[in-house]
Computed example of a mutant assay.
Amino acid sequence: MEEPDCPEGSASDRGGERQTASLPLPASFLEFLSENGLDPAVYSMAATIPRYIRLKPGMESQIAEMEAELKCGLEKVSWLPGFYAIPPEIQIAGSTAYQQGKIYGIDAASGAAILALDVLPGDHVLDLCAAPGAKLCMLADTLGTTGSLTGVDVAKHRLAACRTMLQKYCLGDRTRLFVADGTLFSILPVNSRMRRMEGSIGVEENGSTFREWTSRRSWKDRQKTKKANANGPQHLLATSEPELIYYGKHSGLVGLCKSDVFCPSVDDEACTSGYDKLHLLTNGFKLLKTGGSLVYSTCSLTVAQNESVVQQFLSTHPSADLQKIDLADTWPCRSGGIPKTLRFDPAVSQTSGLFVAKFSKLPT
């Protein structure tokens, strides 16, 4: 099951705008909230929850300049490195700092979910619900100049926004982006299967060897997109393999044959050659290597999409081990309905809300 599609930032921060919910709420919805143990007041707090931004590393010396332009103070988030809170009415999209790729909006709870992964240098990280891209940028920053990052999303236009964001912040060198259904995606990290591909590296295979990525598309690709659009957005997804729309020069693809890169995982190959870190659940767990870590997070506050999903997953996956997130001891969150899971509630955390559970994969 993939992470629900929810925007980065607060209630909504697309284009620097914030949308708020207002009371009164419909009786049927109030009943639904009651069944899930939720206080209806959380839906009237959007206007008071701070907006959160993350500074690109190395930009700390320019904070005073940013504060002058935004006409507000940047309040450092003590429990989350690199994050700052600003008043909810402040719009960042028109600022020079935003346009020059020095800051971007991302909710503090989403940043905590990334920290929970405990990404290390050299890791191969997979985000199976990557759009709109703020978490992907934070992951790329954390990886630095080692490892690899794979982003997957079902919506091509949203994944294209990820591509733009990675390029804007100069974070795409080790990244590749696939348009695909996250519940079916099965392509393993390139570096993990180098021995299998050794005989085909650098060999031209009917013009299908990856060269340096370019934004210029061939006539064939343009016609393919045109046909897909004519048949509806889901047509392409249902009838073809994952579509690679971006790869960085150090992502491991340059010089490799496409037939090898797009070869799906087989049998238990993922246990030894899969991803070190993921950001999904059922299908993601199949692609996780033994000893790897998986974070499942949703912006939903309901039990059905959170604790119930975790319980069902654990009951059918004996090699899944629910992990305590040690960093959370200093986070403004509470325990979820299952021990070791976390909930960022708006009233407690001053964030938009998030559920987080972390798993590791045991040897079978």
Rank of each mutant, 00 (worst) to 15 (best):
M1I: 12
E2G: 06
D5I: 13
P7E: 04
E8G: 02
G9H: 03
A11Q: 14
D13I: 02
G16M: 01
Q19C: 00
Q19L: 09
T20N: 14
L23G: 15
P24E: 10
F29K: 10
N36D: 14
N36M: 00
Y43S: 08
Y43H: 02
I53L: 14
P57I: 13
P57M: 14
M59K: 14
M59I: 11
Q62N: 12
I63H: 06
I63M: 04
E65W: 05
E67P: 00
E69W: 05
C72R: 10
C72T: 15
L74F: 15
G82L: 03
I86K: 11
P88S: 12
I92V: 15
A93N: 07
G94L: 07
T96L: 08
Y98H: 11
K102P: 00
G105L: 04
D107S: 12
D107E: 14
A108C: 05
S110G: 06
G111R: 10
I114R: 07
D118V: 04
L120V: 07
L120H: 13
H124C: 07
L128S: 14
A130K: 04
G133P: 09
K135D: 04
A140E: 01
A140L: 08
D141V: 10
T142K: 15
G144N: 01
K156Q: 09
R158S: 07
A160R: 09
A160N: 08
A161L: 10
M165L: 14
L166E: 10
L166S: 10
T175M: 05
L177W: 12
V179F: 05
V179L: 11
A180Y: 01
A180I: 12
G182W: 10
T183L: 02
I187H: 11
P189L: 03
R193V: 15
I201G: 02
G202L: 01
G202S: 09
V203Q: 13
E204S: 11
N206W: 03
T209G: 10
R211A: 03
W213M: 07
W213H: 12
T214Q: 08
R217S: 01
W219Q: 06
Q234I: 14
Q234M: 15
L236W: 12
E243H: 09
L244H: 06
G248W: 03
K249W: 08
L253C: 05
G255E: 07
D260T: 07
S265N: 00
D267K: 02
D267V: 01
D268I: 02
C271H: 08
G274K: 01
Y275R: 11
K277D: 03
L278P: 00
L278R: 02
L281S: 11
T282L: 06
N283E: 14
G284N: 06
K286M: 05
L288D: 00
T290A: 06
V295E: 06
Y296G: 07
T298V: 12
L301A: 00
L301D: 01
A304K: 15
Q305V: 02
E307K: 11
V310F: 11
H317C: 03
H317Q: 12
A320Y: 12
L322S: 00
Q323A: 04
Q323V: 07
I325K: 08
A328N: 13
T330C: 10
R334I: 13
R334C: 07
T341R: 03
L342E: 04
D345R: 05
P346H: 07
A347Q: 12
V348N: 08
S349T: 05
S349C: 01
T351P: 04
F359C: 03
P363F: 01
T364M: 01
